[in-house]
Structure formats: structure tokens, C-alpha cells
Design a protein around this nucleic acid. Structure first.
Lengths: 187, 187
DNA sequence: GTTGTACATGTCAGTAAGTACACTTGGTTG
DNA sequence: CAACCAAGTGTACTTACTGACATGTACAAC
């Protein structure tokens, strides 16, 4: 049910074809918020059309269909957006691995954390680059498409990176203590 | 394939029954990392058993079976933990709504952000309480079960909360500018 | 004129997940 | 000793998602 609202949300911005929507998912939405592929998008658009939440406003060459949101669709989107209980079903593979990190040797755990830190850094850099390329008007409008989502990344990615670095540091300290006590015992 | 590794990871800590594993998911893992229910856990345990990744070490009353991880299971868990590409399929309903917040009126957007801020605050408080109840040894051991995951929450939740508050502030500023320019035009 | 490439839309089979239903057993309380 | 509840394990049905397969079109280059 979420994908259908993602599509409604994008179409609420402006009409688009399945192909264009696929691009949006590949280039921005899918990386930060909701991953999907064209093989979901097309059937879902058909269902949305059958349900009267979107309409076909243009048929172009190569079978291209441009969809637009209908008033009913807009209403349904708004209902979903304001729905109080933000789904609580977490499903975060990274967090899961962190939960289970005690099953690894310290050296392996360290390598894994290193991966996370690097990953967060890379994503943060990419986001900075994206922001640098965007124009001023977009940056200054908190309601612009994706602006708040971008800010979310700007704030959570450093936290994630620092957390991974903290973990590495903790492991190093443990290692040091272990080594020192080992030396002491040999004295 | 992730649930099965979550189960292996928990069993790597110590043997447990399906019922006990269900409790762990309900009380900690499911809230922070991977949500699931008993109706997935039992069939998956059976499959893990068939695959030789876990074994039944005790059969008690009420049909209770205690499972333990086998060496093959441990190997498979380790392989998965170190697997380089941390799944990139994001699926975050909250982030999605933020992406689509431009489809709402400013007042509605503000209410939604308020929800997010409150939610993050509540989760952060719960986490602090949990940490306060935990013993010193656990807090000081970065490799303890769930310790790194807890730290992750301690660091990302404030970022999320502050981000939502930032959004609210931005909306308020926009509102102010709008009101002022409205007044000016009436002069 | 054919060859390659980006555009554009779809289906299908298999697996994972969500939700509801269903059953037995052990211990406690009245 | 009956009634009830929590413990404990499971099935069944439906929807969502993944990845591979399939098909055709416009356009440009050679």
C-alpha cells in the first residue's frame, strides 16, 4: 500500500509516465526513502487507474502514457500522509547487523564498522554534491520536493558516520587494554 | 533471507525456543532493527533445522523446542554478516512522507513534522530509560548484544528530532514572511 | 538500409511478509 | 474440579516484492 501512495505523491507534483516515475525512483526517491523497480510501477499504475485515483491525460508514441492524479487520488494521498500511526515495522538490515555484531571477532566487527562509516561518508558527500548543484530557490524552500528529505540525510548521515567511528574507537580501546594487560602479565 | 540470519544471530548468542525468540523481537530487535512475528519465526526455524543450520537441543513440555546454532549455521551467519554490499533497498515510510511533504498545506506539514519530532523524542527517552536500567558491564562493553545498536539510536534519534524541529521552524519563518508581506500590501 | 541504442511498457514465477485463525498444555484461582 | 489465562506452536490465505524475461518503437550513425 505504500508504493501506491508514493506514486500518488509524485503524480500530485505533476503528471508523468511510468518511465519518468521509474527514473525518479532510481535517481532520488529509491535511494533515500522507498526502493522499487519498474516491474512494480507499471502494474500499480494500472491498478491506480482502475481505482480512479489517477487518469491517463496523454498517450504518446511508443505506448507512452502520461498519468495525472485525480481529485479522489489527491484525497486518498492526503489521508495517507496524515494517517497518525507512521508504520512501526522497522526493517533495517544495517541496524540488524549491528545488533548481532557480538557474534563476530573484534577484528571483523571493526572491519564491518569501517564499512558503515565509509558508506555514510560516501552518501553524505553525494548529498552535498547534489545540494551544491541545486539552485538557490530550491535550497531555500523547505516545502520543495525532496528538500526536507535532503535535510534529513544531512543530519542523520553524520550521526551514523560518527556512531560507526565511535564503535571503532571503542574496539580499539578494548584491544589496547587487552594488549597492555597481556604485557603486564608477562612482566 | 534476512529473517533467517536474524534468527541465526540470536541463536549464536545462546540456544532458545521459538517463543523466546518471539519475545526478543517484540521487546528489542523488532523495535530497532527487524520487525517480525511468531508466524514467520516458527516456519523459518523449521526450515533452518531442515537445512542443518540449527539443531534441536531440548524438547520440553507444551511442545517447546530449544534450538541451538550448528557450526554450519555459524559459518553461514558469519558469511552474511561480512557480506560486503549491505542491502541498498531502503524502505522507509517516514522518509517517503517527508519526500512528499510538498503535497500538503503548510499547516498540515507542520503537524506531521510535530508528530515526527515527538515520536523521536519518545523513542529517545525510552532508550535512555532502557540504558539506565542496564548494568554497568553491559554499558561498557561495545560488543555486548545490542550495545552498538543502542548507541546508534542514541545518536540518530536526536538528529531526527532536531531535523523535524528544523522543518517546523522553517515553516514558521515562511509563514511569518507571508504574513508580513500580506500586511505590507494592505498598508 | 541495417545496426545499435535509449525509450517505453509490460508479464511471470518464486519468495518474503502481513494478518487472521487455530490448537494443545500447564498452572492458578475460586 | 471447573474455569480461565498465559505459554507455546503452528497453519492458511493474501498481498508485496525480487529478478528475469519479453516485446516493440523512435532515432541516429554508418
Amino acid at each position: 500500500m505504500t508504493l501506491r501512495h508514493a506514486l500518488l505523491g509524485l503524480l500530485a507534483g505533476k503528471p508523468a509516465s511510468g518511465f519518468e516515475l521509474t527514473k525518479v525512483f532510481e535517481e532520488s526517491l529509491g535511494q533515500w526513502a522507498w526502493h522499487t523497480t519498474h516491474s512494480h510501477i507499471y502494474p500499480e499504475l494500472r491498478r491506480l487507474h482502475e481505482a480512479g485515483l489517477v487518469e491517463i491525460v496523454e498517450r504518446a508514441s511508443r505506448g507512452r502514457k502520461t498519468y495525472a492524479i485525480t481529485p479522489e487520488g489527491r484525497q486518498e494521498l492526503r489521508r495517507w500522509m496524515m494517517e497518525p500511526p507512521v508504520s512501526e515495522t522497522v526493517r533495517n538490515e544495517g541496524a540488524l547487523r549491528m545488533f548481532l555484531i557480538n557474534t563476530l571477532e573484534p577484528a571483523e566487527a571493526r572491519a564491518l564498522l569501517r564499512q558503515y562509516a565509509d558508506n555514510a561518508s560516501r552518501r553524505l558527500e553525494a548529498l552535498h554534491a547534489q545540494l551544491a548543484n541545486a539552485d538557490q530557490a530550491w535550497r531555500d524552500n523547505p516545502l520543495a520536493v525532496g528538500r526536507l528529505a535532503a535535510e534529513r540525510g544531512l543530519r542523520t548521515l553524520p550521526a551514523l558516520r560518527d556512531w560507526a567511528l565511535w564503535g571503532i574507537d571503542q574496539l580499539d580501546r578494548m584491544q589496547e587494554r587487552f594488549t597492555q594487560s597481556g604485557d603486564a602479565e608477562q612482566d
